[in-house]
Simulated assay, not measured.
Amino acid sequence: MVSADQIRTVVGIIGNAISLVLFLSPVPTFYRICKNKSVEHFSVIPYIATLLNCRLWVLYGMPFVKPNSTLIVTINGADTVIELLYIFIYLLYSDGSRRIKALLLLFADIAFIVVVSAIVLCIFKSHEQRTFIIGILCIVFCIMMYASPLSIMKRVIQIKSAEYIPIYLSIAYFINGLCWTTYSLIHLDVNLTIPNAIGLLFAIAQLLLHAIYNKSTKRQSIEGKSEVALVEVNVTH
C-alpha cells in the first residue's frame, strides 16, 4: 500500500521539476533582451517578486523554521540563483530610471529578507511560531509573484497586444500552481495551499489575456516586420 507521505514526496519531486521549468521559462525573453541589447518594455517586477518569494520559501523550509521541508528548500534555492542571473542581465541592458528602479527593488528585497530573518530568529523561539509568521509572509509574496506579470496589463489593453506578457511564463505559472496546490492538499499545509490556489487564478487571467489579444499580437508582429523590411529596402536604394 502506498502511503500518503510517499505520494506527497512523488508529487513534490514532480513539483520541483515543473518549478524548474517555470524558473527557466523566461529564457526566451532574456535571449531577446541580450540579442537586442535592450529591455524594451519588459518589466523587472516579476523577477524581483519571484526572487523575494523564493528566498522567503527557503527561509520557511529551513530546519529551524519548518523541519523536513527539503523539497521546498532545494527548488527555491536553485531559483534564487536563476532569478539573480535574470536581474543581472536586466541591469546590464537597462539604463536610466529603469536601472535605478531595478537596483532599488533589489536592495529592498535583500534588506527585507535580512530584517525578517533577524526578527523571526530573535523573537520567536518555537517552530510553530516561526512557521506561522513566515508562512503568512510566504502567502502574501507568493500571491504577489503570481500576480506580478499582470503589472503590464494596462499596456497590454492599451496596445491590444500581449507581447510583453511572456506566454511561457504564464503557462509555467499555471502548471506550477496546479502541482503545488495538489502537493499541499495531500497533507494539508495552508501556507502552501492558499497562495498556489490563488496563483492558479492569476495564471488563468494571464492566459486569458493571451487568448484575447493573440490575433492582434501576431498581426502587429507581422506589420512590424513588414515596416522593418520596407525601411531596409529604402536604405538599400
Rank of each mutant, 00 (worst) to 15 (best):
M144N: 12
S97V: 14
F141L: 01
L106K: 06
A108M: 03
Y164A: 02
A111V: 09
V156I: 13
I157A: 09
M145D: 08
Y86W: 12
I87L: 13
I136V: 11
I100P: 15
A162L: 02
S97E: 15
I157S: 07
L103N: 09
L178W: 05
D109P: 01
S151R: 10
C138F: 07
R99D: 02
L92K: 15
I82W: 10
Y146A: 14
I82A: 10
I89M: 00
Q158T: 15
I87S: 08
F141P: 00
V140K: 00
Y93K: 05
S97W: 13
D109K: 01
S184T: 05
I171H: 11
T131L: 12
I136C: 06
E128G: 06
I143H: 08
I136N: 05
A102P: 00
S97N: 15
M145N: 14
R130V: 00
A147P: 00
S94L: 00
V114W: 02
L185D: 01
S97Y: 13
Y164H: 02
D95N: 15
S148Q: 05
F88I: 08
T181R: 07
Y90R: 10
K101P: 02
L105H: 05
M144R: 03
Y90F: 13
P166W: 06
V114Y: 03
G135N: 09
D109A: 04
I157V: 12
I100Q: 14
Q129W: 05
R99M: 06
S126C: 06
C179N: 14
I175C: 14
H127M: 01
T182F: 12
I165R: 02
Y164C: 00
K101Y: 11
M145P: 08
I152K: 12
L178D: 05
A172N: 10
L85Q: 07
L169H: 12
W180I: 01
C138M: 09
A162G: 05
D109G: 02
I136Q: 05
R130C: 03
L85H: 08
Y183A: 00
F124Q: 09
S151A: 13
S151Y: 14
L103F: 10
V120E: 06
Q158Y: 13
A147D: 07
S151C: 14
T80P: 04
L84R: 00
G177A: 13
D109V: 05
I87G: 09
I119F: 07
S161P: 05
I159W: 02
L91Q: 01
G135D: 07
L105N: 06
Y93C: 04
V120T: 14
A102R: 07
K160M: 08
D109N: 09
Y90K: 08
I119P: 05
I152N: 11
F132D: 13
R130D: 00
I167W: 14
P149S: 02
V140R: 00
G177N: 08
T182R: 01
I87V: 11
P166F: 03
I89F: 04
I134E: 06
R155K: 14
I157C: 12
S170A: 01
K160W: 11
Y146F: 15
L169A: 14
L85R: 07
F107T: 15
I100M: 15
A102D: 04
Y173P: 08
I110K: 00
A162M: 03
F132H: 11
Y173H: 14
I159G: 00
K160A: 06
I134W: 10
Y168L: 15
A108H: 03
S148G: 07
K154N: 13
R98A: 14
I167F: 15
S97C: 11
S117H: 08
C142R: 05
I167C: 11
